[in-house]
Nucleic acid binder design. Structure first.
Lengths: 217, 217
DNA sequence: TCATGTGAAGACATTCACAGCA
DNA sequence: TGCTGTGAATGTCTTCACATGA
């Protein structure tokens, strides 16, 4: 099993999206520098990333878009597809459901969980919502390996443990609280408040840069 | 103006959150290794990050929590505070509004924008929603420098340009589409679908690792 | 003795620059 | 000529390890 770095995986995902667009619209071949400028990276970076997936282009025509897509998908996707569950059908959970609808074939939201009686045992956007207590059983039955935590911070950690017990090995945590899990389980904390704080820091930097420029000129 | 790397800023934000918790609950001093284990990093990393903000601890008592908070906040915050706007009051926009309520003093959501007549000219969670066409005027009046894009991908880019025109210099884009802006404006693309794809990749890796282990043992 | 501050080493990631090929 | 694939150089981030000080 080949190992790709975090950054490389992110870029492969970006490349794939670009290639899917290109496949629909226009050419069947692409050069590293075209892909690079679409993705906002250096062309050597692209070539190095693609080297890793073991598909070679030609110096005449660059890369074959369809073959490249196939190569990237072999790295990123599982042939059988993977099941995803959303925990929490508040605004955030439903937003993710909305964004996701029909966008990826190999990745399917198969269940939602909530403990609100107004939510569970109902179907939202074609996805059935179950009571949180049934997580273990449902996740195993539907073969769910990816969990998205979209609940308030107070019980996020507990839910993460439950997901892990239910066989989930990749978790996305949107609650503004850091969660640690055994190293064999991947968790990405996507703290929305931190993101705003970071953007605010950079916004300020830009303003100060602008002020300095105006001072000089 | 000191420059901090992206990663350092992220960690400073994490440290601050941890320190705020500690300030409330217990001790008034903290050692680098304590802060490190809370943040999930190496203690040398913590000391190096704190070196940068120009506040020194003592080898006897480590760092003074309150002073450290002050030091970090001087780097991250603007004294006057910054204004934030959310574009799009669908599920995602409201989720962010919910998560944010009263969490940060120096960062205030001052406006929302939407073009749905059911949304604009109303108040949500204490935040007034305006028509998207008034963005320029409203942002300038309320001194908004940070924008959050929480709309479907099709018009995300257009909105980003409008925000930039309205004087916003830090943007968070939650739509699953990459947006490029002039380099003086900071934009972070927080693509929710890519995040799931990444988690799915890692979930699969964990499963395969587990399978290998079981095979060996 | 134990923690800080930091030079130096190490690990990783990106980019340059060019050989080789069509 | 203009591309790919890649060694080597550069740049960035993290960690080690130790002098210094209370």
């Amino acid at each position: 099993m080949l190992q790709f770095s975090e950054k490389t995986i992110e870029r492969l995902i970006i490349y794939r999206r670009i290639l899917l667009d290109i496949l629909k619209s226009s050419d069947s071949n692409i050069y590293s520098h075209q892909l690079a400028s679409n993705a906002g990276v250096n062309s050597a970076q692209v070539r190095r990333d693609l080297m890793g997936i073991g598909y070679s282009g030609s110096s005449k025509n660059g890369y074959d878009v369809a073959m490249l897509l196939k190569g990237i998908s072999e790295v990123i996707d599982t042939p059988e597809g993977e099941g995803v569950a959303i925990v929490g059908l508040g605004h955030l959970g439903r937003a993710i459901l909305d964004y996701f609808r029909g966008r990826r074939q190999k990745l399917e939201i198969r269940a939602a969980f909530d403990h609100d009686p107004a939510k569970y045992d109902r179907v939202f956007h074609g996805v059935r919502c179950y009571h949180t207590d049934n997580m273990n059983q449902v996740c195993r039955e539907l073969n769910i390996t990816v969990g998205i935590i979209a609940i308030p911070p107070d019980c996020a950690e507990e839910i993460a443990y439950k997901l892990a017990e239910a066989g989930v090995t990749g978790i996305l945590n949107y609650a503004p609280v850091k969660i640690d899990l055994p190293q064999n389980i991947y968790i990405e904390n996507r703290d929305m408040i931190m993101a705003v704080e970071k953007a605010a820091y950079h916004a300020r930097q830009s303003h100060e840069r602008k002020a300095v420029h105006e001072c000089i000129s």
